[in-house]
Design a protein around this nucleic acid. Structure first.
Lengths: 231, 231
DNA sequence: GGCACTTTGTGCATAGCTTCACAAAGGTAC
DNA sequence: GTACCTTTGTGAAGCTATGCACAAAGTGCC
């Protein structure tokens, strides 16, 4: 057991725990009782040594010669991730994306609950969505406080994102998931994660282009950029 | 100049280029002509040494004592990311998320174009969205081929994701952006990036819980897990 | 031209992450 | 109980990424 459990799980490990959890839930649904690190690693799409090292950060929950008890490991990971308690999530910005998020099934699953919806557009305020009325952004602070919201999802246009972040932080929120394509500046102690669709596409485009270059053998030269850009 | 430009930009750098590009576009809109690594780093929310090292991988595009020409750098990064050409993107799965993606403004911006929409539900097929009719999934291969689609976004339920991936790969696609909460198994040479809402929330929950633990000083004990889970 | 100032590009040290490889530990069969 | 098999947990090595700190290179003033 040695130095495990001493609080200090690497970020890279934390980022993979949800992946393992999903794989384990899949196994549990199919009635599997125990699983080896090798099999679980395949299901999660990672290297088995990495998987074992990741799990060893939580404690020594496997049995040598046998593997891991699926249910027990699900519980331990859930507990570590804080999913054994209920998190009240607010979504700010009920446009296309905000609606999609509110309706997204897997979202509301284990541990998370959409507790508030906000929008600045009075035409949207009052509308009901997943059994919840949309509140006006003016009520942000009071509703967050009243409903015990601890995680806020920002799905507003980029221009509004920083302002929303400032307000929810002032209201005591310290965890933000940002879908707006904007860099948020936040004080220390506040966690921001961002999901950015165009960034992901651009990364894919980079690799796609590289594959194409390799085939044709024409690594585009740094030619007349002014022409291409008309500056 | 030394060893730059020798093809082999670190993944971590590639992942940040879109961030720099966005910051630069912001500066360009405000009419800024040149920018120092320090200022650009602040705008992008990174360390300036890291920024300079990242940019040095593309080549030596700055001027000592002055900084970087905003327009020129925008062009160089765009070119490196492959945004000077047009990418035809298909979205598979026109549910809430698929619709949100299709309508998402920043998505269709620079370099990307929604060229096809697919769904398995005949009630959705034929519907028009962003000037584009939804095709039935049966037409997947032929439409991908006809419209030159090279990047596919999977926004289907998890159960359908692998099957969709197999089909688009068979149709010649080698870049996939996966929004379905499923691990995709793909052959070598195919790039998959995944965006997972519940994973992000779970990571936030982990940190949020840890903050709470630190305050109350009650690091939840590994108690009767069977009770909590009812197994 | 020379000097002072600014800012890039990068060598180097450090930190963090990944992977290998194996000893330790548990199970099973006889 | 012993021998053998399986699989975990982890030390150690290698690799990648980060950030400091500074020499090199440019600008502009006089």
């Amino acid at each position: 057991m040695s130095q495990a459990r001493e609080r200090g799980i690497p970020d890279a490990t934390v980022a993979r725990l949800p992946l393992y959890l999903r794989a384990l839930n899949g196994l549990a649904e199919r009635g599997t009782a125990t699983v080896s690190s090798e099999d679980l690693a395949v299901a999660a799409g990672v290297n088995s040594a990495k998987l074992r090292k990741d799990l060893s950060h939580l404690g020594s929950y496997g049995t040598r010669g046998v593997g891991y008890d699926v249910q027990y490991l699900i519980y331990q990971i859930s507990r570590e991730l804080g999913l054994t308690q209920d998190w009240a999530v607010a979504i700010v910005g009920v446009g296309n994306l905000g609606r999609a998020l509110a309706n997204y099934g897997g979202f509301v699953s284990r541990g998370f609950r959409v507790a508030a919806l906000f929008d600045a557009d009075t035409a949207v305020v009052g509308e009901r969505l997943v059994g919840m009325a949309v509140d006006h952004i003016d009520q942000l602070e009071s509703v967050i406080d009243k409903r015990g919201v601890s995680i806020v999802v920002i799905a507003t246009p980029a221009a509004a994102a920083q302002q929303v972040a400032d307000r929810v932080i002032a209201a005591g929120v310290t965890s933000i998931l940002n879908f707006a394509p904007a860099v948020l500046t936040v004080p220390g102690g506040v966690d921001v994660r961002k999901v950015d669709l165009s960034t992901e596409l651009q990364i894919l485009a980079f690799h796609e282009q590289r594959k194409a270059d390799r085939e044709t053998g024409s690594p585009m030269m740094a030619g007349d950029w002014a022409e291409a850009m008309d500056v």
